[in-house]
Write a protein that binds this DNA or RNA. Structure first.
Length: 449
RNA sequence: CCGCCCUUAGCUCAGACUGGUAGAGCAGUCGACUGUAGAUCGACUUGCCCCCCGUUCAAAUCGGGGAGGGCGGACCA
């Protein structure tokens, strides 16, 4: 499905960025010396300022006066000089002793301000929160290490820009929100170059859809202040990146790269761009200075490739976290994707959403026969319960009156036992999904005016 | 550069030799049955037959040209 075609937004590109920039506007005009060291790895600070966006955190220091951890933002130099990654985001310039001396309740993730609207139960510990609804993690030990000291650690998901978010996007977005709640920094890569390589249109078109996508993510609940949105083109066209890319090309077989390409155009034979694509994904993990790569299970092969190849270039291996792929709504099999089958997206009206949920495959079991899944339960588990404290099933007296659930397990068990009828489950699912979708839907309408 | 194969319904393909303006399976839609969906049963829909030119009363079908896709050869050796 060609989402980018025929959708053109009249706004001059870039205009949005000026709107919400925070205090940088005064500095933005000040001209910096034209010549810069040629060996920069990362996008230069100027670029971030020009776009009114926060630069990556390069260090976190403990500010005694405020009694809090403070993130220093900036742009690291190349990995040979200046900041190296050991000194940047991941590293604790905050000595544990300093934190301890600042007062017992002053936990680092509280003071970072990220955690203000926590949506997870206070009993859940960081590791459990990170692992919630994760299908797989590579490796568990590495993730436990992250969980032990999540503050300032950086996680990302890369999205190929599409005009409309659907539940597949939101699944990983939920995980990002979890990670923010756990105290990590979250980077959303708006992978415009990848989209281009995948034939999604001109850079201009892709840029437009990327902006729409970003707006919808923010509407959905990724806080704009604590989430770093990065366009791939901001750094993926730089010389050093390109040279690293070529080095990867040199050491990766066609076969391997092709198998790592998750976004396959069904049945079509791969273009050269399609094998470059996953290699760039590998490099992104390094160049965005990440500590954790997040993606759907379909990203598994890329992440494994990255783990194998990054050390060859002299970079660290990062852990990966994979969310499940939700089954197709109508059949309960395979995966629900935007290109095939029924998908719920932010484009859906309440009525459309209800109709889709209503026609979903939903046997009164949590474990249907064969390889099938129960997509209705999956949506409750992956989309509803992570974002709502409790779920109320409104039921006529005739069928036993309302039911209230605080956890997915209880709801699934009731469906299994027959206490909860699938039709009632669907009704409430539609209601809650609609609530999740609503802000994004409004944003979309606003954008398209 | 040369050669071979492919292009028909949303998908996978039959039909071409022996011209008479299209078929199957799957998918989809609508009913029936279930307090959901599925399964099952019943009904229904779907087409620039890749494009252009020619032959013919008549072309998806034959001839010529072209486009797109796949594969191989050659060059490198």
């Amino acid at each position: 499905m060609d989402r980018s075609a025929g959708r053109r937004c009249r706004r001059p590109s870039g205009a949005r960025y000026d709107a919400g920039s925070t205090g940088d506007s005064a500095r933005r005009d000040r001209r910096r010396p034209r010549e810069r060291p040629r060996d920069r790895t990362r996008p230069d600070l100027q670029q971030y300022r020009r776009r009114g966006r926060l630069a990556p955190v390069v260090a976190a220091v403990f500010d005694r006066e405020r009694g809090a951890r403070v993130h220093l933002r900036g742009v690291p130099n190349s990995r040979q000089t200046g900041w190296n990654r050991r000194l940047s985001g991941r590293d604790r310039l905050t000595a544990p002793s300093e934190i301890a001396s600042s007062g017992s309740e002053d936990r680092p993730d509280d003071s970072s301000g990220i955690n203000s609207s926590s949506r997870f139960s206070p009993h859940m510990d960081t590791y459990d929160l990170i692992m919630r609804n994760a299908e797989e993690v590579v490796t568990d030990e590495e993730v436990r290490e992250l969980a032990a000291d999540p503050a300032g650690k950086r996680a990302y998901v890369g999205y190929e820009p599409s005009g409309v978010l659907h539940l597949g996007h939101l699944l990983t977005a939920n995980k990002l929100i979890d990670l923010q709640d756990a105290g990590m920094e979250v980077v959303v890569l708006l992978a415009d170059v990848h989209a281009y390589l995948n034939g999604k249109g001109s850079f201009e078109e892709i840029r437009d859809t990327a902006e729409q996508m970003k707006a919808q993510f923010v509407a959905y609940g990724l806080d704009e202040d604590t989430t770093e949105f990065v366009y791939g083109s901001e750094y993926q066209l730089e010389e050093e990146y390109t040279l690293d890319l070529h080095e990867l090309e040199l050491s990766t077989t066609l076969n391997r790269a092709q198998r790592a390409m998750a976004e396959i155009q069904g049945g079509e034979t791969a273009k050269v761009s399609h094998v470059v694509y996953p290699l760039m994904q590998c490099l992104d993990i390094e160049y965005l200075d990440l500590d954790l790569a997040v993606g759907g299970l379909d990203q598994r092969k890329v992440h494994m490739l990255a783990r194998e190849e990054l050390p060859e270039l002299g970079y660290d291996v990062r852990p990966a976290l994979h969310t499940p792929i939700v089954a197709d709504l109508t059949s309960g099999e395979g995966k629900m994707s935007s290109s095939e089958g029924v998908t719920i997206s932010m484009e859906d009206s309440t009525a459309e959403l209800e109709e889709k949920v209503n026609s979903a495959f939903c046997p009164p079991t949590r474990d249907p026969e064969g390889d099938l899944e129960n997509p209705v339960l999956e949506l409750f588990e992956y989309h509803v319960f992570p974002r709502f404290e409790e779920v109320v099933v409104e039921r006529p007296e005739k069928y036993g009156g309302d039911l209230t659930y605080e956890a997915y397990e209880a709801l699934a068990a009731d469906l299994e036992s027959g206490e909860l009828h699938p039709a009632d489950a669907k009704g409430t699912l539609a209601t809650y999904l609609d609530e999740l979708i609503a802000p994004g839907r409004e944003k979309l309408l606003e954008i398209r005016d």
